[in-house]
Design a protein around this nucleic acid. Sequence first.
DNA 1: GGATGCCTTGACACTTCCTTGATGCCGAGC
DNA 2: GCTCGGCATCAAGGAAGTGTCAAGGCATCC
Lengths: 232, 232
Amino acid sequence: MVTAEPLVLIVDDETPIRRFLRLSLVGEGYRVVEAATAAEALERIVAQRPDVVILDLGLPDRDGLDLTREVREWSGVPIVVLSAREKENDKVAALEAGADDYLTKPFGIGELIARLRVALRHAALAEVPAGEAVFTTGDLKVDLVRRLVFVGEREVRLTPIEYRLLAVLVKHAGKVLTHRQLLHEVWGPEYGDENHYVRVYVAQLRRKLEVDSARPRYLRTEPGVGYRLTVG
Amino acid sequence: MVTAEPLVLIVDDETPIRRFLRLSLVGEGYRVVEAATAAEALERIVAQRPDVVILDLGLPDRDGLDLTREVREWSGVPIVVLSAREKENDKVAALEAGADDYLTKPFGIGELIARLRVALRHAALAEVPAGEAVFTTGDLKVDLVRRLVFVGEREVRLTPIEYRLLAVLVKHAGKVLTHRQLLHEVWGPEYGDENHYVRVYVAQLRRKLEVDSARPRYLRTEPGVGYRLTVG
DNA sequence: GGATGCCTTGACACTTCCTTGATGCCGAGC
DNA sequence: GCTCGGCATCAAGGAAGTGTCAAGGCATCC
């Protein structure tokens, strides 16, 4: 959930219900993908990595609880179950299977959205410790969570563009990134081939990060291609 | 949750209900403490640090939602709300106030226990012990429970907005918060991009908290991004 | 109804950053 | 040895972002 709006996967075999949910959620600012079957739901979860799943238990091809258990083997994505069954045992079974919430139909859309928000809140909390995202190579240390950069013990202050450029390089550390890729990731696709920007900022980064900027250790030039951030 | 069995705080003014819940929960292996009023509940939460709270909304001395909001200022302990009110608005309001779940009476004890387990699961994942209630960095001390702020020995008086702004920064201490995030957390999402508010109040906080507000030690500016509260 | 404290808003000085062009370096190819 | 293209560096100016002050409005409390 690094990016803008949370992505919700709606799993329900009835088109009108999916439609209704989609409209309501999009109106609240969420992004939405849909699945009509358990098989499709699995695909979508793997491929799109939604931030939360709304799961109707009455699927045609497979038991919803089963699906929940399988997903739980490899993913912690919050699952909010919808069901017509309101017996206590059904609720308990779903929650034990790994669901995070259970609403019985008919439910109010306001309540569903409020409970989705709770689920997202939980997911966001769980994410922080997992994302101990500190990249290290040599004396260079980049803490992507706190947005801090160190060379040895010294903290280095970077401007927004310098930091974004470094962050892109860190995310693809070891790989060569073309001037074009860097330009588009940092400045935006509308900048075309104005590679001069990249050069200027790589030079600035080197001045701030490298011991000897004439002999770069971290920010290596790949002549005719682009740049690479050394790993290890 | 360092020790063996999770500790549950039951907040309800009716003795028979507390008794019933206690017996059920002890039977499931939980440890239990009780509170009959909101004031008592606050004490218990501070003193005993329960792993989860069961909160009946109909308390004699104070509105339960209010209590929830106050607790949420300094603690992430899961709160499962019980209530006779089953209108959608009541549920939404409770969940927005910071509750993690909402059950309408009458409820099955099995469902309650299943939902408690879910709440504990989430708390365990979050791992962050909800942060200490007293945050300290350098000479700055922020007591989130008593809403008190000290610089060295001197108590600093803050206005409501100043305090909320500082509290948000404390909750994410060490991380950069964008102007937008701060604006939306403190003033509300409807304020869009009116970052001027944030600037004015950061300046005021600095005047009250920093020794040399031209050279801020605690409230650091991250140009082009936002602000960060220094840790350590 | 006067005093007080707080929030909002605007004006303005100040700082930092981005863009841009000029210039120099280096190696490859002729 | 010369030219040329890709790369590195520098610095100036304008643009954008930031810090500060203070007045006016509103509510609250004596």
